[in-house]
Design a protein around this nucleic acid. Structure first.
Lengths: 195, 195
DNA sequence: TTGACAATAGAACGATCGTTCTATATCATA
DNA sequence: TATGATATAGAACGATCGTTCTATTGTCAA
């Protein structure tokens, strides 16, 4: 029970609270989760965390986490000695949500079925982000209706014509009829191993 | 100036505040951002948002967004009539951060260079999530040191031996020396089009 | 042992929170 | 126009917030 309370302990418990509740804890709540009975003790630790730069106060005086607790180190290039040098705290790298999603309201997710874009590195069970009200550019990957089915194809403009091509030699290019229906443009791909 | 204030207006402004500040606004702040002068008017609108299920109160009475503002609709399968039916509000789909990152402390990001895993659908300039203290299983993609360089390979155990294979016929399988160094296991891939 | 410092407890305080009340102003419909 | 419903303003209130103070305990080194 003589467990020395460390800055890291307190930090971790506050981060855990934030991840669970989607907001920062009050001083009373911090008192509960770190196991002290007085708010003044919390104040004591919060000042330490502020000095250490782990916490901040925003313009209104509310506590804020300095860095996104889900952000990852970005190890720029795969080169010598990389993984050992964990010293570089370049954690300024983003949340994937911000990175991938420009407009949540016009985007949706799709679980990929089929192998039509296999050579573009899009495989079955990948998730793709589709942005629906964006005009397809030449070379974009689009979600289009072909023979009543929605599939992904490269979008090409050749002369005045639109050609839809799979990234798979198994499938032939398609020159759509007048009523080409395009659901959206693929703006991102996400794959997860070890479900 | 006779702009009717709608529920959606208020919702959007609160969400915008949340995304910008990482916390929910106070009533005074809501008054500012929606342009009213009295907190009682804010209360009036908040009750509406609560009734509509757009906002909630947590156990302590703090306002919370019911759904993650970055979450996307998941359109399950690519089949008929899909994109038109935006009625299905199955937005229960996650943030990519939660989806991809199990342990932020032991994971890091890598920008892919080279084509060694091209046939596994991992291409140059993709981002991969590497989890560093996880024991590689047979068939995993690992980040390993080969001839002083860090590259991605399939990890295979054949008999008592470890074989590292690229997903590219250009490169031959490698049977590493005794001092095999593995930086981690690839647990996710993220690609973004239209930077 | 003693003294200095780190850590905790508890009480009090002003400020701000969200709520509630009354009172107007605006809009829609009969 | 008359009437009810909708939307706004402003003041007041109790509750809780974070801060500050005093006081006590525990730890380590001189």
């Amino acid at each position: 029970m003589k467990v020395k309370r460390t800055l890291q302990d307190v930090e971790k418990k506050i981060i855990a609270f934030f991840l669970k509740n989607g907001r920062m804890p009050t001083y009373s709540e911090i008192a509960e989760i770190i196991g002290v009975r007085s708010k003044s003790v919390v104040h004591f630790w919060v000042v330490k965390l502020l000095d250490a730069g782990i916490l901040r106060k925003d313009a209104k005086g509310f506590l804020t986490l300095t860095k996104n607790p889900r952000s990852l180190r970005l190890a720029g290039e795969v080169c010598a000695g990389l993984p050992a040098s964990a010293e570089d705290e370049i954690r300024d790298i983003i949340s994937f949500d911000e990175y991938l999603i420009r407009n949540p309201d016009t985007s949706f997710l799709l679980s990929v079925t089929g192998d039509s874009m296999i050579e573009a590195g899009i495989r079955e069970k990948d998730m793709v982000v589709v942005e629906s009200n964006r005009a397809p550019q030449n070379g974009d990957i689009v979600l289009a209706e072909v023979d009543g089915n929605w599939t992904m194809k490269y979008f090409h403009r050749k002369g005045g014509m639109v050609v839809l091509e799979a990234a798979n030699p198994k499938y032939s290019p398609i020159i759509p009829q007048a009523d080409l229906r395009i659901a959206g443009v693929i703006t991102g791909v996400v794959r997860k191993y070890h479900k």
